[in-house]
Design a protein around this nucleic acid. Sequence first.
DNA 1: TTTTGAGTTGTTCGA
DNA 2: GTCGAACAACTCAAA
Length: 454
Amino acid sequence: MNPVLVWLRRDLRLADHPALLTAASTGRPVVPVFVIDPGLWDAAGARQGRLAASLRSLSDDLQARYAVRLVIRRGSPLAVIRSLARELGADSVQVTAETTPYGRRRDAAVSSRLADAGVAWVATGTAYAVGPGTVLTGSGTPYQVFTPFSRAWRAHGAPGPAPAPSRLVGLAEVPSDDLPAPTLVANDVAVGEAAAHARWRAFREGALTAYGTDRDRPDLDGTSRLSEALKYGEIHPRTLLADLGRDEARGTPGAGRFVTELAWREFYADVLWHHPDSAWHDLRPLPGMEYDEPGVTFDAWREGRTGYPFVDAGMRQLAASGWMHNRVRMVTASFLVKHLHVWWPHGARHFMAQLRDGDLASNSHGWQWVAGTGTDAAPYFRIFNPVAQGLRFDPRGDYVRRWVPELAHLPGATAHEPWSHADGYAGGYPARIVEHAAARSEALRRYAVSRTSR
DNA sequence: TTTTGAGTTGTTCGA
DNA sequence: GTCGAACAACTCAAA
């Protein structure tokens, strides 16, 4: 019997995996393969070690549950997938459809080469509850605004989650490259499908109720911390939404808000689907906008020494742990764009290099929202005050002290304002690199220039 | 085709 | 200290 190849990418799980189920349902031997694509691997930055850990977990799960081995191959997927199919005599390749610009181009090339060799390409499902490109306005156009999208997306609904295949038969003796070495980092969350489900259960039973308010508090454990698991597909949003539907019916306060956050993830994937260039270019450019080239202040921002405690805490959390709280992502992004006047892709690239959960659609469009160049952009005059944001969302200063040791000697909220404290700089904390009011006025001036040249 | 209501996440200023 | 207004105009989505 010809085996079926299951090419895994952002779907490193066994449960609720339509492509894997489809492969299993053929009754033929299944060969799960992950291709380490040098082009992606080298650009993965902080995600290399995280991805490696996820692969190891999946490999263990496949072995334990089905006695099936995960095959690792290094090289260009264009060459690797076809040669593996030929090597094993596989006549079909099953995948979860990829929806990012690079993934779509790559899959188009691989599937067309497979077709030439008589190998079928079967794409089942995506990384989203509703496939990008599916939800359209009444006139058949893509949504440009989040709220109507989210209404239509909710109305569209998603199928319930499916179980893991009850049975999977592997193929003996398929040569495999070694798994890359996983790395752990500070403040890490557990890796793998079982850990993702455990985290989700704990979150539902705990922080979900207060999610509406606590989600904005970087000093608390108020979020699900599932961004990495979603990024690698260790758990699928369908699974989360099915549970959240029950929670909403039961009247759990934070459930609706969490659904909305998933809707944002799906919205941004949808926008990127319709506008692939928006990954690294303004969706709606600001004509005549003046940007500064990244220089010494950009370096200070990257390294967490801007002199603004909340910003620096975030940038250091990112560097040390590969993750940053969402509220702080907004504030640090706003600081780069509005206080340092740097074009958003410079910051977005840095985030993508450092984030273990780095997701192209969410990252690029989160930045574009801040910069006012995206869909549904923030009003130009909405400029975060980094100190006020810190005082509001880290009221006791715990978050700042945790990530900025030079401020650890300052009590409570004074950690947000070392300049107003006699020994505020005793720990060697740097002075502010720009003055807030002046930077704000300058940003307003530049946005005004752009508006008048429109 | 035209109209209309609405649009994640904020800050500052002055009464 | 509190509170409302101003900060703008534009585009979208649906009726």
